[in-house]
């Protein structure tokens, strides 16, 4: 099957140096791809390039056959949604109206809401366990709840490609698992292609079809969890000694940092 989103040998730099070098990835429908890599390895930059916020310095990005920056904005937003920055807290916006902003690319410019819009927003709120909080303002809920609201907004946007930049950073373990369950459901039900930048090494292995390991702006390794999550790869990317075994309950790869093993400087 053709990838929904593909990047070929993408390079980028903010100043003189390279932040990304020759990165190639494919996102297929019905697949969750996990983007791993230490802080500063270029994950967020890659998501900005894939979503058309930044132009790549070299290489090519194709979203359904066209470069993302070549789309009219709304058409692009119907194809691809992004979970990134924290939502605003300086203005009193309710969770529900925040999530409803995700419907913008489906609405007329003045944002007339249709029954479908309302239904999608309700579903997105229910999926993310926020329905009870829908009338609260964003500044009065916790950071984790705000993060779920951001995910809900992307769900309401209803795009087939979802790029999620550390969507679980502030979540407790139950909501972290719930997040991966939601993505899995959307993958199976709607055939979305998701790219999830994350630091949850073991959870990723449970839920991701493919893993891309970024280190210093290049793809250090990519493939199935079994192929990528090896002690050697993790050591090389994170400078951390780990043991990798199989989780006896699920059979997925399990990554455990080792105590007392001094982290080797890269």
């Amino acid at each position: 099957m053709n990838p929904l989103l593909s990047a070929r040998k993408v390079s980028f730099g903010y100043g003189a140096g390279d932040v990304l070098r020759d990165v190639s990835i494919d996102l297929h429908p019905g697949e969750v791809t996990i983007l791993l890599g230490p802080n500063g390895s270029g994950k967020s930059t890659l998501i900005r390039i894939l979503s058309g916020v930044l132009p790549s310095r070299a290489g090519e990005v194709l979203l359904c056959g066209r470069p993302p920056r070549g789309y009219p904005r709304r058409e692009m937003a119907r194809l691809l949604s992004v979970v990134g920055q924290d939502p605003p807290v300086d203005f009193p916006m309710t969770v529900e109206s925040f999530v409803a902003l995700g419907r913008f690319p489906h609405q007329g410019f003045f944002g007339e809401t249709t029954p479908e819009d309302r239904e999608r927003v309700r579903q997105a709120l229910a999926e993310t366990d926020l329905y009870g909080l829908r009338d609260r303002t964003l500044s009065t809920i916790s950071a984790g709840e705000r993060q779920r609201a951001t995910v809900a907004r992307a769900i309401a946007q209803g795009a087939r490609v979802m790029l999620l930049d550390e969507p679980t950073a502030f979540l407790d373990i139950r909501h972290r698992v719930a997040f991966y369950e939601i993505v899995t459901r959307m993958k199976e039900a709607c055939g979305i292609a998701a790219l999830v930048a994350s630091h949850d090494l073991s959870l990723c292995a449970e839920y991701g079809e493919r893993i891309i390991l970024l280190a210093e702006g290049t793809v250090a390794s990519q493939g199935t969890p079994v192929e990528v999550l090896t002690p050697g790869n993790v050591q090389a990317a994170y400078g951390l000694a780990v043991s990798c075994d199989r989780n006896p309950a699920t059979g997925a790869i399990r990554v455990t940092p080792l105590r007392g093993m001094p982290a080797k400087n890269r």
């Binding site: 916020v53 904005r73 119907r78 605003p88 109206s97 902003l101 003045f110």
Partner: peptide, 23 residues
Amino acid sequence: FLLSRGLDLLLLGEQAAFQTGLS
């Protein structure tokens, strides 16, 4: 008033507004 939906989206921050389909 005609720009009001755009102003709603600007509150998200420019990057998020762009990714949600705003020019």
